[in-house]
Design a binder for these strands. Structure first.
Length: 419
RNA sequence: GCGACCAUAGCUCAGUUGGUUAGAGCGCCGGUUUGUGGUACCGGAGGUCGCGGGUUCGAGCCCCGUUGGUCGCCCCA
């Protein structure tokens, strides 16, 4: 580039774990978001926007002070007013906060959907970033299993429309109500205590911090112990059993395929009843494409009224990696301006086309002789060349992939007095 | 926080047991050819081989450190 070293400054690098998207991946990303927005409307979910930044307490309370996310993965800092604020590491807590502070109880049950960036200070790896993006859907203020089932139908349809349902399985479990969960947890701790000597180091730490997590340990040393641990089924209250039964009945009625995974648990404490993950083996270590569950205790934990709620979130980057390359709408018209004298005419034509809702772009820089060649390499329905002959611009239609587009384009161009 | 692998032109990469002025394709810029044409050819710009030390007569290549990337563990979407 420039040899002027005096003007050179070291270019700052992108922050670790962030990404700049252009071209193919940006198209994939947009396609995922577009599909989500379409399906969300089909299910009557309202679009919501919530802040990227929240008081730290919103996440510290809801996620539990001791979880890794809170203790070492949050982007938290004091703002200039001395308030501790945090870049959101997830959507649910912020939406729950908004539900309380805006009095959205009046709309309960409230079905909302959103998407956007989230931040977690983690080691980046495949399908894992410090700034990542999720789709999110929540039903607030409903204790009905119909809400769980509908959310899963929504998720299932989204994956189908993205064309990745074949490589992805819905795995489902219940964590029961508070009573069931506590009883199961106690039984699990007892079971694992009995095998303390054979557990991996990681799982010994989990035993104190988060015993449920031993169940889905990847360590082969843990597997026999985890596999022989009791399922929750024996501890489910009648109510909890009925609830899970209603959810699965709904899925069956709607033709949503699912598998029971009695080892599927949640790290976060506020989850109750339904827990689910859509998993794939096509993303390396990142198996989960979409996950969620019921979090009846959360809103109360944030100081709101007791409110039942259920929701899910899905990583946009992960979905974008799984889908086939989306078709991108070609440009309607590309203009090859083969003589600088014809540039004003090209500008006039391009503007007129755009005013008529026809996309247009022009190649008018670089070697005049090569502009046509460049234009042919651009994906456009209609290629037109502009040359300067006998003191005026001459427009020629050179190649066409869609006659109906050409008809519209010709009408505009002819109306300008060309041809 | 821990581990493994990687780092050469704008991009994708080659570079032989260490041996003169570090190469290719694509892209970019210019020119010739073609002129109803997505062709072919010629030329050009662009690299302190991530950065810093060390070994050596000599390092893109070997050693150490460092930064960054990738993948995995932990955790998690």
């Amino acid at each position: 580039m420039s040899k002027d070293k005096s003007a050179k400054i070291p270019t700052p690098q992108a922050v670790r774990g962030t990404q700049d998207m252009l071209g193919d991946f940006a198209d994939r990303f947009a396609h995922v978001v577009g599909a989500f927005d379409r399906v969300r409307r089909l299910y009557g979910f309202k679009r919501v926007e919530v802040p990227v930044i929240e008081p730290t307490a919103v996440f510290a309370r809801s996620l539990g002070e001791t979880t890794d996310v809170v203790s070492k993965e949050m982007y938290s800092f004091e703002d200039r007013g001395g308030e501790s604020v945090t870049l959101r590491p997830e959507f649910t807590a912020g939406i729950a906060r908004a539900y309380i502070t805006n009095g959205w109880q009046q709309f309960a049950p409230l079905k909302v959907a959103t998407h956007g960036p989230l931040f977690r200070y983690e080691r980046p790896q495949k399908g894992r970033y410090r700034q990542f993006h999720q789709l999110d859907a929540e039903v607030l203020g409903s204790d009905s299993p119909l809400a769980d089932a509908e959310l899963l139908m929504f998720a299932d349809q989204l994956l189908k429309q993205l064309g990745i349902a074949d490589g992805v399985t819905l795995t489902l479990n219940t964590l029961g109500d508070a009573e069931s969960r506590d009883a199961w947890r106690a039984a699990l701790v007892e079971h694992f205590e009995g095998h303390r000597a054979s557990l991996s180091e990681d799982s010994l730490a989990r035993l104190d911090k988060n015993p449920l997590r031993i169940l889905d340990s990847k360590d082969p040393q843990d597997r026999p112990i985890a596999d022989s641990a009791p399922d929750i089924d024996a501890f489910l209250t009648g109510e909890a059993q009925d609830f899970f039964g209603a959810v699965t009945a709904g899925l069956d009625a709607a033709g949503v395929a699912w598998e029971r995974n009695a080892r599927l648990v949640r790290g976060l404490d506020y989850y109750r009843h339904t827990a689910f993950e859509f998993v794939t083996d096509r993303l390396g270590a990142q198996g989960t494409v979409l996950g969620g569950g019921r979090y009846d205790g959360l809103i109360e934990a944030l100081g709101g009224p007791p409110t039942a709620a259920v929701g899910w979130a899905a990583g946009i980057e992960r979905l974008a990696m799984l889908i086939d390359e989306p078709k991108v709408d070609p440009l309607n018209v590309i203009l090859a301006v083969e003589d600088d004298l014809a540039i004003p005419a090209a500008q006039r034509i391009a503007t007129a086309l755009r005013l008529h809702d026809l996309s247009a772009d022009m190649i008018a820089t670089g070697s005049a002789r090569k502009r046509y060649d460049k234009a042919t390499k651009i994906n456009a329905h209609v290629l037109m060349s502009l040359r300067w002959i006998d003191d005026k611009a001459v427009v020629r239609t050179q190649s066409v992939t869609h006659d109906d587009v050409l008809a519209q384009v010709s009408a505009v161009v002819d109306g300008l007095g060309f041809h």
